[in-house]
């Protein structure tokens, strides 16, 4: 496969592999998914935390993402409670980021000579992360295929330098490239493989199971308690002295604390799907998660990776 004359990919995984090899070739560290439940690739500390501070960064990764309210028991052609995002974050944003992005579309088989690619205003904001940026949604023949954002603020901190963030909704993009109408029909691996598997073979059952769990079964009392606990643990970790009493080293536990913030955020999403959060409470919960995110950001910028001299 070459970047100049790519064949049309034949499977979901081929699209992911091509994006991995494209961004790897462009100098990004190819990271692995974060090992926690998150609502979007942005929550991965490789984006949220690494967008902070002055140190340069370039990373790309697939992130399984969960949006409990979007579950449709695997019946809706494009709505899933568990789906994949492809995420690229480069800091500082390079001057040719748009060209790099367009190159990635070519790499997955979108012919620029035949399609209509457009950058349409779409400002991004995450109230739970206290983050916002300006950019576009990218349209291919009228379909949104990616989000393109220049981060201006994360966790209440101004971004200096600014990171460029690209987010691809992988299922939707792949369905478009592969010409598939229902996500469950999409070939996951090569259709000519000895054991061809569709997206449905892999995920139909889990979509059903989680839809039932998310909407009707998750124990809301337990979840509410877990939310409180995660919040308390986050605060507890951040309240510790910077100097570790055992090693005498300067260790700020920004990442463990941030894990608790992610946890609280996902629990909130679950509670929301269970319909036990009223409109007014909703704002209050979002505010509590944002407060955690801000405190984690405050802690991270005091660490070495956050730009503090060692």
């Amino acid at each position: 496969m070459t970047d100049t004359t790519p064949q049309t990919p034949r499977s979901f995984q081929e699209i992911i592999l091509r994006l991995q090899s494209y961004w790897g070739a462009k100098g990004c560290a190819i990271l692995q998914p974060y090992d926690m439940e998150v609502g979007a690739g942005t929550f991965h500390p490789a984006t949220t935390l690494r967008a902070l501070g002055s140190r340069p960064w370039a990373a790309a990764y697939v992130q399984p993402s969960r949006r409990p309210t979007d579950g449709r028991y695997g019946e809706n052609p494009n709505r899933l409670q568990h789906y994949y995002q492809y995420q690229v974050l480069i800091k500082p944003s390079p001057p040719d980021l748009q060209q790099l992005y367009l190159g990635s579309l070519q790499a997955i088989g979108i012919d620029m000579e035949l399609h209509d690619i457009r950058f349409v205003e779409d400002d991004w904001e995450s109230p739970t992360l206290g983050a916002w940026g300006l950019g576009w949604e990218v349209w291919c023949d009228g379909m949104e295929v990616s989000q393109f954002t220049y981060f201006q603020q994360v966790g209440g901190h101004d971004c200096h330098p600014v990171s460029g963030e690209l987010t691809y909704g992988l299922e939707r993009l792949a369905m478009y490239v592969l010409g598939i109408d229902h996500v469950m029909d999409m070939p996951f691996n090569d259709p000519d493989a000895p054991i061809p598997l569709s997206y449905g073979d892999v995920f139909r059952q889990t979509e059903e199971e989680y839809a039932r769990y998310n909407f009707d079964t998750a124990n809301t009392e337990v979840l509410l308690r877990h939310f409180e606990e995660a919040e308390a643990e986050c605060e507890h970790l951040l309240a510790q002295d910077d100097t570790d009493p055992k090693t005498g080293k300067h260790i700020i536990m920004a990442h463990p604390a941030y894990d608790q913030c992610i946890k609280a955020s996902h629990i909130f999403n679950l509670l929301d799907a269970r319909g036990v959060i009223s409109v007014t409470e909703r704002q209050a919960y979002i505010g509590r998660v944002r407060a955690l995110a801000k405190r984690c950001a405050d802690a991270f910028v005091r660490t070495e990776a956050g730009g503090q001299a060692a």
Binding site: P77, N78, E113, L114, H115, D116, I117, R118, C140, D141, G142, M143, Y176
Partner: peptide
């Protein structure tokens, strides 16, 4: 719909894509 370019297939691919998105 208004595209931002001419194509060799007189916009057939673009139109088909737009139509599909609209149907969804």
């Amino acid at each position: 719909t208004v595209a931002n370019r001419d194509t060799a297939d007189q916009g057939a691919t673009i139109l088909a894509g737009n139509q599909k998105v609209l149907s969804a």
